[in-house]
Design a protein around this nucleic acid. Sequence first.
DNA 1: ATACATGCAAACACTTTGCAGCACA
DNA 2: TGTGCTGCAAAGTGTTTGCATGTAT
Lengths: 142, 142
Amino acid sequence: MIRKTIQQRLVLEAAQGMCHPSAEEIYQVVVRKHPNISRGTVYRNLHNLTASGMLGRVLIPNGAERFDTTTPPHYHAICKRCGAVQDAALPYQEQVQDAASTCDGFVLEKHDIIFWGICKECAQRAGQCEAHMDHVGEGPAD
Amino acid sequence: MIRKTIQQRLVLEAAQGMCHPSAEEIYQVVVRKHPNISRGTVYRNLHNLTASGMLGRVLIPNGAERFDTTTPPHYHAICKRCGAVQDAALPYQEQVQDAASTCDGFVLEKHDIIFWGICKECAQRAGQCEAHMDHVGEGPAD
DNA sequence: ATACATGCAAACACTTTGCAGCACA
DNA sequence: TGTGCTGCAAAGTGTTTGCATGTAT
C-alpha cells in the first residue's frame, strides 16, 4: 500500500505549483524546505504519484521527463530552441484515435501530439539579433 | 563541407537496411564490417546524416532515438511493453497542423503523433500467459 | 596542405537501484 | 511490528565531447 510521507507531500505540492516542471526543478524546490531529501526519493515519489494517477506526465522526446497536474488529455508544444513546454491550444482529437485504433496487429490505446516550434521569448530574442542564436534544445530536423 | 568516409557510408547503409534502428543497433551492424569503428563516430555520422536530410529520425519519448529512411511525414506507433516502433496507418493530418499553427505566441512548425499500444507479438505473449508479463519499455500511465 | 573525420576515453544528463536504517500504518 | 520509504552512493543508459592522429579533398 502507498504510504504518506512528508517527502511525498512536498514533491506533490511542488509539482502542482509549477508549470510542467522536470524532476530536477521539483528537487530544487523541495530541497529548500527539506534539505536532506535526495534526488532518488524525488524520482521514486514522482513515479509513485504518476502511477497512482495523482500526477500527470509529459514525455519529452530527447529530453527530461516533465510533470503535470492531472487533467483531461491534451497536447503540448515544445520550443526547439529552449525546450520550454506549453499546453497546445488544439483540443483533444477523438477522431485521431478512432482513425488509427488498430494498425497491423498493434492495438493502440492512446496517442500524444507534440508540436515543435519557437516560443514567444525565443522569437523575440531571435528578432533582436538573428546572428547569435544557438540551438539549446535541439529539436527534430526541419 | 560534409566529407565522404567509409564509416559514413556504412552507417547510412546500415540505417537504411533496418527498420527504425537505434544508434546502438546500427553500431552493432556496422562494427561487424568495420571492427574499429567507435560509437562516437556512429553518433556523429547519424547526426550529420539527419542534419543533411539523408536520414530521418524518430524521437522516442523516454527512450533512445531511432532512425528512419527519409520519407514524407508520417506517424509512429510504439509498443508500451517492448518498445517496438512501427509506422502508423494514419496518414499525415494537414488540418492538425493548420488548426494549431500558433498558440499563445508559440510559432508551431511541425508536429508528431505518437500512438501508444501493444504490438502483435506482445499481445500474443500476453494471451499465452497473462501473469508473466513485465513492462519492459514503460510507456505513459494509462 | 588543411580542414574535417576518426578512435578512444572521459564526461555528461537523466534516471534507477542496492542497501542499511528509519518511520508510518 | 513489519512493510514500505528514506538517504546515500554507485551504477546504468544514451549521448556528447576533447584530443591527438588520420584522411579525403
